[in-house]
């Protein structure tokens, strides 16, 4: 069991985590954050393996990984 926590206010919507996720369970939110970006969000959290590829790819260190 693993989970990620995305800090939506730090996210700049660059989508690099989408391409890094081997399970393809990150997508962009339809909402805006305070900066005006669409932040990343996780779908199907039960599939997350906690590999942390999204977190190491995130240029804004906006993702924390728990395992």
């Amino acid at each position: 069991m693993a989970k990620i926590v995305i800090d939506e206010e730090r996210c700049k919507g660059c989508e690099l985590c989408l391409t890094a996720c081997p399970k393809h369970i990150i997508t962009m939110s339809d909402n805006f954050n305070k900066k005006g970006y669409h932040p990343a969000k996780q779908i199907n959290p039960e599939e997350c393996s906690g590999c942390a590829f999204c977190a190491i790819t995130c240029p804004d260190v906006a993702i924390e990984v728990f395992k």
Partner: peptide
């Protein structure tokens, strides 16, 4: 659940001023 990845102590809490997707942030973190 234990945190296995988070912001390193050697980075402050200040959000980076770099453009979206700029690799500077990754280099800073490393």
């Amino acid at each position: 659940m234990k945190k296995v990845f988070g912001r390193p102590v050697s980075l402050t809490d200040v959000p980076f001023t770099y453009c979206p997707g700029c690799h500077h942030g990754i280099a800073h973190r490393l």
